[in-house]
């Protein structure tokens, strides 16, 4: 078997809800075996709607979808024994204990690991006899993760796995996900934490209003975005007093009151030219902040561009 086999393949996927709302508007991507792939986006971007289709919970309205070579909705029996799922909100009867819940799930999963082992994986062994309703939000997330891992799945779907976890719980989950990748598990996760995507994802796609706005490795996605320089204009100076911005390598700028924000793809050249100008003019650039593109910048930039585009399209139409 080819090690670069596409474990998940999505082409032109669409999902329209009953009221006519189009949550997923024709997205395509693939996930390779052993990869951690993150779907990143704000609330309402279409992350969960997409993942639910991959999990086979609903039938897509258009597009082609393959998980491990099968249609997850129509060929459920072929896919389910090989996947593990953690929904955004765990659904467990509140009156069962942690161990009873895990035992029930274990009985429904082929090749399930023992209950004690699964609970130990997520640090819940000491809470085995506690009713689900008495668990904290974070503990419930971890129980959900334990159940997703019961069958030692080849493909793991994690919908916002660390929402509600404290910093330590989040790091533990990250370590667990990395250990799973090391043992060959393919992971598709959604998150609105940029740090989580940066920490975990081999590749990611940024979803915005049901479309993929950018995708690639975190480095690629970041590199496609300009760096930025932020400073306060000195008293009595205007943007026109700066050297011609084009010559500085600036590809975009905004002025808000006295605060100037420059975007550039040649950070060193722009920053040097700006500082040389300030030195010669003997002025101080207060609040100077020079930052190379981060995933966060990329994320915000993409959201901004996309909504500007929507506005222009709306105006043109």
């Amino acid at each position: 078997m080819d090690t670069n086999e596409h474990v998940i393949e999505v082409t032109g996927l669409r999902r329209v809800y009953g009221g006519g709302f189009e949550a997923v508007r024709g997205i395509s991507f693939h996930v390779e075996r052993g990869e951690i792939f993150a779907l990143l986006g704000t609330n309402g971007a279409g992350k969960t709607s997409t993942v639910e289709l991959l999990e086979g919970l609903a039938r897509p309205d258009a597009g082609r979808l393959r998980v491990l070579g099968h249609d997850p909705y129509t060929e459920r029996a072929a896919v389910r024994p090989r996947t593990g799922v953690m929904l955004q909100e765990g659904g467990f009867p509140s009156e069962l204990t942690v161990a009873e819940t895990a035992r029930m799930w274990g009985g429904c999963v082929s090749g399930a690991r023992p209950v004690g082992e699964a609970l130990a994986l997520v640090g819940l062994a000491g809470r085995a006899d506690v009713r689900v309703k008495q668990l904290s939000g974070g503990e419930r997330r971890r129980l959900d993760l334990a159940l997703a891992l019961l069958g030692d799945p080849e493909v793991l779907f994690l919908d916002e796995p660390t929402t509600g976890l404290d910093a330590e719980g989040r790091r533990d989950t990250w370590d667990l996900v990395r250990a799973l990748r090391a043992s060959g598990t393919t992971v598709l996760l959604t998150t609105h934490y940029l740090e989580e995507a940066e920490q975990l994802a081999d590749r990611l796609a940024i979803l915005h209003q049901g479309r993929i706005a950018a995708s690639g490795t975190p480095t690629e996605v970041t590199a496609a975005q300009p760096s930025r320089i932020l400073f306060e204009l000195p008293e009595g100076y205007f943007v026109g007093d700066l050297p011609p911005l084009g010559e500085l390598g600036v590809c975009g700028h905004e002025v808000e009151g006295r605060v100037v924000r420059l975007r550039t793809r040649e950070l060193q050249r722009t920053a040097t030219a700006l500082l040389v100008w300030a030195e010669r003019a003997r002025v101080e650039l207060r609040g100077l902040d020079v930052r190379s593109a981060s995933l966060e910048e990329a994320f915000l930039g993409i959201a901004r561009e996309a909504s500007e585009r929507t506005k222009t399209e709306g105006a043109a139409a």
Binding site: G111, L121, D172, A179, S183
Partner: peptide, 27 residues
């Protein structure tokens, strides 16, 4: 593959302790 902060449980267990393939009746 041990998990920091989650004890020494492994993410891969031996086959011996695994449950069988499920059937409609067992599920």
């Amino acid at each position: 593959n041990t998990v920091a902060g989650a004890g020494s449980a492994s993410t891969r267990a031996g086959d011996a302790v695994r449950s069988a393939v499920t059937s409609p009746a067992s599920r």
